[in-house]
């Protein structure tokens, strides 16, 4: 309970978001990696994994975000919250842009040296996009938490 007193409702929500990102990405990667190794990576195999991920996210959100709202006082966003949010969106933007550049580089590299690393199929590109989204979201949450803690 002391943990709840030390952090504001907003910070706890960001922590919860961060943990959700980690859970979802760990589950996704742990399920997708074997498919990738066994060369069974296709849309049919990916669909149940994505579906399970969505179910996990919904259950987690109901329990954790619900508990945070029950045990802590909800506060209206003020200018400082918006300011830190903007800062974190900037980091998130840079991370996603970096990721997209990496994909472009991979596609271009594949087009030139196909025999070396193989073709980038659509599911593989989708997985890379998923990882970029997770990294970008994690970066956003960490930036917000860093700024909140730094100013206390």
């Amino acid at each position: 309970m002391q943990f709840l007193n030390d952090y504001s409702n907003r910070e706890l929500n960001i922590w919860a978001e961060l943990v959700l990102d980690i859970i979802v990405s760990l589950y996704f990667i742990s399920r997708v990696y074997p498919l990738l190794i066994n060369d069974q990576f296709n849309s049919e195999a990916l669909l149940p994994i994505i579906f399970t991920n969505i179910i996990i996210s919904i259950i987690y959100s109901i329990i954790v975000f619900g508990a945070i709202d029950i045990f802590t006082k909800k506060e209206k966003k003020d200018e400082r919250d918006y300011f830190y949010e903007l800062k974190s969106y900037r980091i998130s933007y840079y991370l996603s842009q970096g990721g997209i550049l990496c994909i472009i580089f991979l596609i271009a590299y594949n087009a030139v040296y196909q025999e070396n690393i193989g073709l980038l199929t659509l599911p593989k590109i989708a997985m890379i996009f998923f990882i970029i989204a997770v990294i970008s979201s994690t970066g956003k949450s960490l930036t917000q938490l860093f700024n909140y803690r730094k100013s206390i």
């Binding site: 907003r10 506060e75 400082r80």
Partner: peptide
């Protein structure tokens, strides 16, 4: 002042510069 208590804490610690309006 229509802000959160955390913002007042940050202001008092001289770690946040408020907007002109605040």
């Amino acid at each position: 002042a229509s802000v959160t208590r955390q913002t007042i804490i940050a202001l008092e610690a001289q770690k946040y510069s408020p907007s002109l309006e605040l």
